[in-house]
């Protein structure tokens, strides 16, 4: 093969690689139920914003739970939680199930996110919160960005990482599961959080 052809082929390969990378980065993470967009793919036309996906920082609703046992809701709502609670995070486990009884006051056309459950794990001076949220039909349809950077968890799940959040729990990972949005926040390094996020199960 001549030098000219080699250069031409190299150029084509470079173009294909760049094009493929751009296309992958731009791929919307459509679950079919939640219109989530990878942050890298957001254009200057603005995607919808989302709330913190956490219950307000109040201790009122948290009820202590047995350390490593499965946490169940008092009703049939979904509860995301750590599948295997590390011993150093099982020193105090508590759960909050916000009262949703008045949600009928909201219309499907309203943009809102129900916080179904919030499980708090504490130990060794660290805190981990795992929350389960469900967007309203209107919120689920709006193209939204749930983090600042796309990552892939150990199990292959695409998730979105945000670091430097205000407050005591600055690192956050969010990922969709069916019509739910699972969030894990902590003061642990985000690399530790990624491992914990891959271990989350929904009951």
């Amino acid at each position: 093969m001549s030098k000219h052809k080699r250069i031409r082929n190299l150029a084509i390969v470079v173009l294909v690689v760049l094009g493929t990378g751009t296309a992958l980065a731009g791929m919307a993470r459509a679950t079919g139920l939640i219109n989530a967009i990878n942050p890298e793919a957001a254009s200057v036309s603005m995607p919808a914003i989302v709330p913190p996906l956490l219950a307000p920082p109040s201790d009122e609703g948290y009820v202590p739970q047995p350390g490593t046992a499965k946490v169940s809701a008092p009703d049939d709502r979904s509860v995301a939680q750590l599948g295997n609670v590390p011993a150093d995070l099982a020193q105090a486990v508590s759960a909050d199930f916000p009262d949703l009884t008045t949600k009928d006051a909201l219309a499907d056309s309203d943009t809102y996110y129900e916080i179904l459950s919030s499980i708090r794990y504490e130990g060794n001076g660290h805190t981990v919160l795992v929350t389960t949220a469900r967007p309203s039909p209107a919120a689920a349809q709006q193209a939204a960005v749930y983090g600042d950077r796309s990552i892939e968890l150990k199990d292959g799940t695409v998730a979105w990482l945000t670091v430097g959040l205000p407050g005591d729990l600055p690192n956050r990972i969010v990922f969709p599961k069916g019509d739910l949005i699972i969030t894990i926040v902590s003061d642990l390094p985000h690399t530790d959080l990624e491992n914990l996020a891959a271990d989350i199960v929904v009951h």
Binding site: M46, P52, Y112
Partner: peptide
């Protein structure tokens, strides 16, 4: 140039409800 969308949220009985937004 850049664009900002801001959203004001209110905690209403277990939900974060968007009250107002602006771009």
């Amino acid at each position: 140039y850049g664009t900002t969308t801001g959203g004001l949220w209110y905690w209403q009985n277990g939900s974060w409800v968007l009250q107002n937004s602006a771009t």
